[in-house]
């Protein structure tokens, strides 16, 4: 498996890179959204899959990136790519502000704080109308840039996945996994758990920040309810869990399968789709807490680096 994987990936990457030359507008925008979900699920995996600190508010970074980029493009006239990168930086700053106090604590406090963070941000954005447009939202100047955004999204998805690979195969990754396994034991071994949790958290915020900016640019219009929805956090969690949290390819697999499924079902049965999502959460938690890849790893004795 390890032998054909790199070659297969390379072929896939080349095909994806060539796709915009042949694809339809709809196809390109669909793929771009798939890349977005891969980046989101994979970023969530960095903090929650690797350290076990579950973030219930990861969409806050997405929204932060969207508004940062939106304001920079809309009012200051920044080039969109630069504005999206600034969105990633601002998401990291936000992660530092919330992670610094919350990650010093062990246990579920972080999860709850993250849930609150998202709600608080949404209210703040709605309140400061002068800067954000408030509940009326923020319109960006018209721009047809689906193809460049396709590549940018793809690059973020690829980078976050590559980053996950580097982390999982490094000592840094081992430290994160000891925190997930047992934080007290990790500390007793002399691991400064707060510092490593914070590093992982900062890294997990960048991707959603950039992707949020790109999504804002792609859609051309953002409003508080469209960039801070709880369902986005839930979707990235479900994708990562379904594919296999804490693995390298699990979140990618989960995003591809569930996004495809969603596209097929969504168009026809809007409510059924949410019902099925709920059913998937319950099934995964009860029957295969390690996700698809986790089950395969166990069954075929695959290495952790898959």
């Amino acid at each position: 498996m390890a032998r054909w994987l790199p070659a297969g990936l390379l072929v896939l990457l080349v095909l994806l890179a060539l796709y915009p030359m042949h694809g339809t507008g709809y196809g390109i925008r669909t793929m771009l959204q798939l890349f977005m979900w891969i980046a989101l699920a994979q970023s969530w995996n960095l903090i929650s899959g690797l350290t076990g600190y579950v973030s219930f508010g990861h969409v806050a970074f997405f929204g932060m990136g969207a508004y940062t980029a939106g304001i920079l493009i809309g009012t200051l006239g920044w080039p969109w790519l630069l504005a999206c990168l600034a969105g990633g930086v601002m998401a990291m700053v936000l992660a530092l502000v919330i992670g610094w106090p919350c990650l010093r604590l062990k246990g579920p406090y972080f999860a709850i704080a993250m849930l609150g963070l998202n709600e608080v941000l949404r209210v703040i954005v709605s309140y400061y109308e002068g800067l954000t447009g408030g509940g009326n939202g923020l319109s960006l100047p018209t721009l047809h840039a689906s193809v460049p955004i396709y590549y940018a999204m793809g690059l973020v998805a690829l980078s976050v996945t590559a980053l996950t690979y580097v982390i999982v195969t490094s000592r840094f990754g081992l430290r994160l996994m000891t925190i997930r396994e047992d934080e007290v034991a990790a500390e007793a071994m002399g691991i400064d758990t707060f510092r490593y949790k914070l590093y992982a958290f900062l890294l997990s915020a960048v991707g959603p920040g950039i992707v949020g900016g790109l999504a804002a640019r792609d859609q051309g219009y953002i409003e508080p309810t469209s960039v801070f929805p709880l369902i986005t956090t839930i979707t990235m969690i479900v994708m990562a869990l379904f594919g296999g949290k804490g693995t390298i390819w699990g979140p990618v697999l989960g995003a591809v399968l569930l996004f495809t499924f969603q596209e097929l079902v969504w168009a026809r049965f809007i409510y059924l789709h949410q019902l099925l999502f709920g059913a998937i959460i319950i099934t995964v938690v009860l029957l295969m807490p390690r996700g698809i890849l986790g089950v395969l790893q166990q069954k075929y004795n695959l290495p952790r680096t898959i």
């Binding site: 996994m177 000891t178 047992d182 007290v184 034991a185 500390e187 007793a188 002399g190 691991i191 400064d192």
Partner: peptide, 24 residues
């Protein structure tokens, strides 16, 4: 000094409660 500074100096600490990494 913090634990991460003390422990690498040749001091090992086994905390209460037989704590292992259960999934490893």
């Amino acid at each position: 000094l913090r634990p991460d500074q003390v422990l690498p100096r040749g001091l090992a600490y086994v905390p209460q409660g037989r704590i292992v990494f259960p999934e490893m």
